[in-house]
Nucleic acid binder design. Structure first.
Lengths: 162, 162
DNA sequence: AAATACCCGACTGTTTTAGTTGGTTATATA
DNA sequence: TATATAACCAACTAAAACAGTCGGGTATTT
């Protein structure tokens, strides 16, 4: 179990899907704009999320991604594991001949704690996060901002588009 | 809150202190041998652990480090935070003008979850880890290994030391 | 005086992050 | 059927973090 900003990006993007994915697939460029993440980086992350069968994709215009399962059935631990690509658990099993548990003792000390963290994050679902009041507040603000941006775009179009 | 092998090293080393620190200060070279971590790297980590006032040091021969507080009063979250040097929380407050919470919304989404993880790890103390049966088993094995190593050293000395 | 062991800064090689570039392929729509 | 959209894909880059090394210092015990 590893926790970096990469996992944060993935969780944030999935949370965005859970918040906006009701009416159909969401394009990555939408998520990129709303959550301020580079589009190409999102593509890399979603490639992994798709391999892990956490999302499904629809190609072509109007396409995008949607959650592969219900938001109550997707948990934070899965998302983080999907983008962090397992990483041989610890640096054991290499040169030190750690087979049969003879050496490599530090490994056990940590992996035990790591398991606990994993169990903890497996208990937090996307719907659980969505239900939180503060998250809804943020989503609301993002929605208002989006509308404002669309409004500006329309006005530009009226003044004289390409 | 970040979770990498760096934090694992720090927690493991602190656990070693909790296990062996009863009879006096423990030298870093002892920990380096037992836990198979580079001595110089440990020095860097303990520099930070000392700044965070999680350990205190004794210089000179017979010196080393000891826990600054009781092992029931030192928690995993503190240790990890100490070596990961905070990292401006998230990448906000830089170019995007995230003051007053207007922008930088993704930040809130994540930091909320991050807080939960933090609270969770704040509930796990060193003494809590020490009390675990499997940890004691590992410590016992390490102790036996240590005795065996000392035995070999003695024999070498008898045969003809420097 | 000598050995121990903390303390400190600078340096190195490797891996991971984060992002870029430049495409190809599938598909809805006009 | 042409076009725009948006997923897909691979290779590349800059910057940071990780893990460790090196060469010194300083305090303290024996």
């Amino acid at each position: 179990m590893r926790l970096t900003t990469k996992g944060r990006y993935a969780v944030t993007a999935m949370l965005d899907l859970a918040l906006h994915g009701e009416k159909g697939p969401i394009s990555l460029s939408d998520i990129a704009q709303r959550q301020d993440i580079s589009l190409s980086y999102l593509e890399q992350l979603f490639s992994k999320l798709r391999q892990a069968e956490l999302v499904s994709s629809v190609r072509g215009p109007g396409g995008g991604y949607r959650l592969a399962r219900g938001s109550d059935d997707i948990h934070v631990a899965e998302i983080i594991d999907a983008v962090n690509e397992s990483v041989d658990a610890t640096n054991c099993g290499r040169g030190s001949g750690c087979a049969s548990g003879e050496k490599c003792l530090t490994h056990h000390l940590w992996s035990d704690l790591s398991d606990q963290i994993h169990v903890f994050l497996s208990g937090i679902s996307l719907s659980g996060l969505v239900a939180r009041a503060d998250v809804q507040q943020v989503a609301q603000r993002q929605h208002e901002k989006e509308l404002a941006a669309q409004d500006i775009e329309q006005k530009i179009e009226i003044i004289g588009g390409p």
